[in-house]
């Protein structure tokens, strides 16, 4: 009865989860994306290190618990050693060793934080403004600016009892009418603010998230790898009202030359 008392729920839970998964669709979705920027890859690496360390500590800790529960069962005749009350050396050990592990975890994160805060050498500044419930993008110094809203197809499908099956909509809830276009291989400074309430701008593949606060500007930088042009999707990441879940972010990263051409086209259209 006592044996495997906690193996059972974990196994049962695992079976329940596995049994319901069709093919490999869900397996892709077990972990953070590596992403397409220097920062996203570093963050992924940090995350994986943390995960492995926690897993290792878990194996040791849970292992000790399971051994205790099995070896010292009353039903198998274990007799309690009521004199085993304290051990100062053990207490010191399991205070100091975890502290050292934590310091070890903290050190790499410092260097990454400094990199995240370093916005020098940027080639382009884009001002991002959060609205209820859409984004506004402005390419500073060019006069190019536009709103970016949830695409019409998604918007129709997401209405309550719309009768439209979300799986028939391309990039359901992650498509907009005017995506943000950026060059690859360039450090881009993003300025974030909001028009009404707090929003947050987040694209998982870029590894960066920052709040957009009305009345103030925040900044962050991204740099999409030169060899990774493409379309990247994210969402608002701060509760901002009814349609918080319906103001996605779509970024199209183009090689520099293509980007310049696109920008020139937009500037011309503004005139």
């Amino acid at each position: 009865m006592a044996k495997r008392k906690f193996m059972l729920p974990s196994i049962a839970g695992a079976i329940a989860t596995v049994a319901a998964i069709p093919a490999h669709a869900a397996w892709d979705l077990l972990n953070m994306p590596r992403g397409v920027t220097v920062l996203s890859r570093e963050i992924y690496g940090m995350h994986m290190i943390m995960l492995w360390i926690c897993l290792a500590i878990a194996v040791v800790t849970f292992g000790a618990m399971i051994v205790a529960m099995i070896r010292f069962r009353k039903s198998k005749g274990a007799v309690a050693d009521t004199k085993l009350l304290h051990n100062a050396r053990l207490e010191a050990a399991w205070t100091i060793v975890p502290t050292l592990i934590l310091i070890g975890m903290a050190i790499p994160s410092v260097e990454k934080l400094i990199k995240i805060e370093d916005t020098t050498g940027s080639e382009l500044t884009i001002k991002v403004t959060g609205y209820q419930w859409q984004w506004h993008y402005e390419y500073l110094g060019t006069g190019v600016s536009f709103f970016s809203r949830l695409s019409r197809e998604s918007d129709l499908a997401r209405q309550r009892a719309s009768g439209i099956d979300p799986s028939t909509v391309d990039h359901y809830l992650l498509e907009v009418d005017h995506p943000l276009v950026v060059p690859t291989g360039a450090k881009i400074r993003l300025l974030l603010t909001a028009n009404d309430v707090i929003h947050a701008w987040w694209v998982p593949e870029f590894g960066m998230k920052r709040d957009a606060i009305p009345g103030f500007i925040n900044e962050m930088w991204i740099s999409v790898d030169e060899d990774q042009p493409g379309t990247y999707r994210g969402q608002c990441a701060e509760l901002c009202g009814a349609d918080h879940g319906f103001m996605p972010i779509v970024v199209v990263a183009k090689p520099k030359a293509e980007f310049q051409a696109w920008l020139a086209e937009q500037e011309a259209a503004q005139l």
């Binding site: 370093d118 020098t120 300025l191 009305p214």
Partner: peptide
């Protein structure tokens, strides 16, 4: 030294609507 670019931003508020509260 690690700053080569900074941005000055203004949010322009209509004083009559400054009264905090429901927008």
């Amino acid at each position: 030294a690690g700053i080569d670019r900074l941005t000055l931003s203004y949010a322009f508020y209509d004083s009559e609507r400054v009264a905090g509260g429901t927008t």
